[in-house]
């Protein structure tokens, strides 16, 4: 009886290992996740800097003077919408529908562009009224943290356009699917970071 069980498990085992060898992309997803975690540490340090310097106004403007929460709410909704539209792109990708994937990716990119555009508009407005990073410790920390996030989104958009070109040229091949899944993690991760930004920087800032 024991012998029979052993033989059974021995015949099963090679199939299992074979399966592992067929999936090198598993390593990519874990590696990309570890990259995201290291990115998370960058943001953590910038949040800590903001936590330390966030109240040092140097007799300059405070968050309540500067921030327009309605604009921030619209900006937040742009990023939230882009998260679910990217999710829809992934669902289309799993069904193997190229046109649907491209459509939802394009919509995601437009929401991303709207987000970056609104952020640049906000920065331009702040800059024009003299609230530059040089004004106070609070503003230095604010610009560093928020602009680092904005730069990530900008590069995410460039990556997204690149992948749309890749998908249009080669279709939904396994390599492109893997790339789209990496970008999916990147995009949703940036949304998670933004939760911290709007909670800590904007809402707690305006609260005083």
């Amino acid at each position: 009886m024991t012998m029979a069980n052993n033989t059974a498990s021995q015949t099963e085992t090679p199939v299992f290992y074979l399966k592992e060898e067929h999936h090198p992309e598993t390593g990519t997803m874990l590696g990309f996740w570890i990259y995201l975690m290291s990115d998370c540490l960058i943001f953590a340090i910038l949040f800590a800097t903001h936590g330390v310097l966030g109240r040092n106004y140097a007799a300059g403007p405070s968050p309540a003077d500067l921030f327009d929460l309605e604009l921030v709410a619209i900006n937040t909704s742009m990023l939230l919408f882009s998260s679910i539209t990217y999710g829809f792109a992934m669902l289309q990708m799993e069904k193997g529908k190229i046109a649907g994937t491209q459509l939802w990716l394009a919509i995601t990119g437009l929401f991303g562009i709207a987000f970056v555009g609104l952020e640049l508009y906000e920065f331009h407005h702040l800059w024009s009224i003299g609230a530059t990073p040089m004004r106070s410790g609070f503003l230095s920390a604010f610009y560093t943290l928020v602009a680092t996030h904005g730069l990530h989104v900008t590069f995410g958009i460039i990556w997204l356009v690149t992948l749309m070109v890749q998908v249009s040229q080669r279709g939904l091949i396994p390599e492109n699917k893997r790339r789209l899944m990496c970008l999916s993690m990147f995009w949703h991760f940036l949304d998670v970071v933004w939760i911290g930004v709007f909670s800590v920087v904007y809402l707690l800032g305006v609260l005083g």
């Binding site: 997803m29 939230l80 679910i84 999710g87 992934m90 893997r178 899944m181």
Partner: peptide, 22 residues
Amino acid sequence: HHGDGASHGTFKSYLIGFILSV
């Protein structure tokens, strides 16, 4: 078919996540 060991969302799970986030 799925390409990796990670789990994927469904239309329903994305929608639940979105509504909760809003």
